[in-house]
Design a protein around this nucleic acid. Structure first.
Lengths: 135, 135
DNA sequence: TTCCTTGCAAATCGTTTGCATAATG
DNA sequence: CATTATGCAAACGATTTGCAAGGAA
């Protein structure tokens, strides 16, 4: 594998991701980095996001909205998706890996893990709809 | 809402999906239907798959491999994805909706449900790798 | 100087859509 | 006959990639 060389762009991308608790898409990363690096290209952003996730420094999330999201928090945790506004929020909850055992009952293959997302209304949207009696 | 009119293509698409226990992509559906309807177009396949899933007659699955899969089994059940061959397999397991409660602890929004996929080695790939000592 | 990384643009891939024609009720 | 559905091709949005030039070791 090719030796890695340092790059300001890659640092900036990782730093930006680490500074956010939401889970930006490549396009959001790109827009923000353009302020600091007016010439940075989307291709570079994608290349580095892919590289960083291959290195295990960030996670690439496929949440089913058609766009990939990226997360600099690589520790085991779960995500909540707001059905109303699309927000992706970290959940602080205990592990649910016991469901792997449940899934393995009567299954001849090997269960290595699970990918789980929760959905519903985020705190903000939840407050709004309660207030307006669901409009 | 427009009144639904009957169409041989739509029937064929639904029948094809119901005849399979794997979870075909639009392209797989298209390829197979071309045998019976040589002129059917990919657009028609997509239009009907989208329509059928809006009607609740099939489910559209986003499993993170970049391609949508379709499932004619609309009952609540879980899926297993083989990391080796990409197979999507139904799991016969008890519900795990109790994890919604776990997710709700300390969260101010409303958890409506979860989307969960299991991954690992399917029965076939599991047998192969055991046999070949992991090659 | 070597070779990794970038910027730019073109290329891919999966999916959607506009339009004229065919099929359904 | 009024409309929905189809086939075809063009349009799309997200992501990837080829290539020549720039930057790091």
């Amino acid at each position: 594998m090719a030796t890695l060389k340092h790059s300001k762009q890659r640092d900036a991308i990782l730093n930006f991701l680490m500074s956010r608790k939401d889970h930006p898409t490549a396009d959001v990363v790109y827009s923000h980095l353009r302020e600091e690096y007016p010439n940075i290209s989307l291709g570079t952003v994608y290349r580095n996001l892919t590289l960083l996730s291959e290195l295990g420094q960030i996670k690439r999330l496929h949440i089913g909205d058609g766009v990939d999201h990226f997360d600099a928090d690589t520790s085991q945790h779960y995500h909540f998706l707001c059905s109303e506004c699309g927000a992706v929020i970290d959940l602080k909850m205990e592990t649910i890996d016991h469901i792997n055992q449940l899934a393995g009952v009567g299954f001849d293959g090997q269960i290595a893990g699970n990918i789980t997302y929760f959905y519903g209304l985020c705190p903000k949207c939840s407050a709004k709809s309660g207030q307006q009696e669901g409009a």
